[in-house]
Amino acid sequence: MHIERFSVETDARTTTVDVTGRVREAIPADASGLCTVYVQHTTAGVVVQEAESGLRQDIASFVDGLVPDEGWQHDRIDDNADSHLRAMVLGSAVTIPVDEGEPMLGTWQSVLLVECDGPRTRNVVVTVTGG
């Protein structure tokens, strides 16, 4: 198994960051198997989607609309329950097949970190397993 870690700086409360290049760099050149991209936070998610700028704005707007901003029990603690619930729907990881060091993404597929409670520094773990 091979593990790499990297950090991502986000600049807005809800935004997307294309991390495909960083994921590619984390995969060993001779690797074949499965690559899991995991964000170590409860208020951010990871998705495979097209990285076109308009769609990325649409994703942020869609995520904002998933859950009302207010009225949650957790808000009594740190006023970000909506971010936790949005990230829960997105998921914290994606798994991508890898062949000879290349993630087997489709033509328009990219790996996006989706920030739900920024701006923040997010930690991403890339794990490659298989042989």
Rank of each mutant, 00 (worst) to 15 (best):
74 H>G: 07
37 V>Q: 06
42 T>W: 01
90 L>P: 02
28 P>T: 02
131 G>Q: 13
66 L>S: 08
105 L>A: 05
104 M>S: 14
6 F>W: 09
98 V>P: 00
63 V>K: 00
70 E>C: 10
122 R>D: 10
35 C>M: 06
89 V>G: 08
74 H>V: 09
106 G>F: 12
50 E>D: 15
115 E>T: 12
15 T>H: 00
19 V>L: 09
63 V>E: 01
6 F>E: 07
126 V>P: 08
86 R>S: 10
51 A>L: 05
61 S>M: 14
130 G>E: 11
71 G>L: 04
2 H>E: 03
101 G>N: 06
28 P>D: 08
69 D>S: 06
131 G>V: 08
54 G>Y: 12
68 P>E: 14
87 A>Q: 05
58 D>A: 03
69 D>N: 13
13 R>N: 06
95 T>I: 11
109 Q>N: 12
56 R>T: 05
9 E>M: 11
54 G>T: 05
32 S>Q: 04
96 I>F: 11
16 T>H: 00
87 A>G: 12
24 R>G: 01
22 R>V: 06
111 V>R: 01
32 S>P: 04
121 T>P: 04
79 D>W: 08
120 R>S: 15
50 E>A: 11
98 V>H: 02
100 E>S: 15
26 A>I: 02
43 T>A: 06
84 H>C: 10
119 P>F: 13
50 E>W: 03
122 R>Y: 00
106 G>Q: 12
24 R>P: 02
28 P>K: 01
20 T>S: 14
8 V>C: 03
12 A>C: 04
7 S>W: 06
85 L>K: 06
61 S>L: 12
83 S>M: 12
9 E>I: 05
74 H>A: 13
83 S>R: 09
47 V>P: 06
45 G>W: 01
77 I>A: 14
81 A>V: 09
51 A>T: 03
101 G>K: 06
23 V>K: 02
78 D>C: 10
62 F>D: 05
10 T>Q: 03
123 N>T: 12
31 A>Q: 00
128 V>R: 00
112 L>Y: 07
58 D>G: 13
